[in-house]
Nucleic acid binder design. Structure first.
Lengths: 163, 163
DNA sequence: ACTATAAGTTCGATAATAAGACTTATCATA
DNA sequence: TATGATAAGTCTTATTATCGAACTTATAGT
């Protein structure tokens, strides 16, 4: 059966995962942020099957995260670029990178970091702050319902043990 | 052929995606943060196939993001709980939620937000700061190589157009 | 015209997911 | 202690996605 779509689920995480929750989309976006625009360059850098790449790029364009155009200098080339919605995923990639760098490299140390272009120093660890500017930890976080929440969702949040 | 493993790729993002880049793992972790611990409760809340859930939970335990134990009150129940590595993914989930809430709800508005437990107000938008505390935008970000970077990776970073 | 390049598409094999029935062990209760 | 219910997970079959490589089409360079 086809992969279940989470796009209809009323949850921002679920809808994001519906777009990003496969083995390739996130690293495609990473390369796009790096400046990769050509189909064959994605293939070369990622060693992704060409049909899979074509499917993922189509999905990203359909979802409005990327746009596709023709290279005006070379009519053979397609140019894939990030739309604003796709660019803003850089914060998600940073969160993934900081987590991966911390937990997925036993001794060798992480090979790459996002850094301040000026100082060349790694950016600070992401901090979550309240609207008053206080740094928050997980045990200070809860989930609240927005205007469009269903009664069932509100009921769940009222009985939450954590987060 | 089996899904290609990105676990060997020397990149924190790739290694994180290798664990999280499927349609279910992220929302499983979301529910675990909500306090869900029982197999059947994951099935009920997510409507995930039982065999898929079993596979994902096994993978999460193997990767050290969750632990599995027996309920001392009820010997039928397994208890799945997040290890520290899994708990720290809450920042990634927040980044996904903030992005999804912004881009995946046309008019209805987002149904749920992470909030400060004290004030019940949504947490502030994630900000990326330099080591000096300045807020950074995407165009101020570059990628730098760490100690374990390969020469090829360093070469790539030297020629980066952006990020 | 000829060759190379870029972007995809097509094909067959393998792996992952979906849906539901089924098994095993434990708990609650009569 | 026998009986039924519950929880966790397995098994089976059908469908879908991914992999890897070959192939097609259009454009560029010579």
């Amino acid at each position: 059966m086809r992969k279940k779509s989470l796009q209809a689920v009323p949850c921002g995480i679920a809808r994001a995962v519906d777009l990003l929750g496969d083995p390739w989309t996130v690293v495609i976006i990473r390369e796009a942020l790096f400046g990769i625009t050509a189909f064959d360059d994605f293939v070369k850098v990622l060693t992704i099957p060409r049909n899979t790449l074509a499917a993922r790029l189509d999905a990203l364009v359909s979802a409005g995260l990327m746009r596709k155009s023709r290279d005006t200098q070379d009519g053979r080339r397609s140019v894939y670029e990030l739309e604003p919605a796709g660019q803003e995923l850089w914060v998600v990639l940073l969160a993934l990178q900081q987590w991966g760098n911390k937990w997925c490299f036993d001794d060798e140390g992480a090979p790459s970091f996002m850094a301040d272009h000026g100082s060349k120093r790694p950016v600070g660890e992401l901090q979550v702050r309240s609207s008053d500017g206080d740094v928050l930890t997980l045990d200070q976080i809860t989930m609240i319902a927005g205007p469009s929440a269903t009664p069932e969702l509100e009921a769940r949040f009222r009985t939450l043990k954590k987060v």
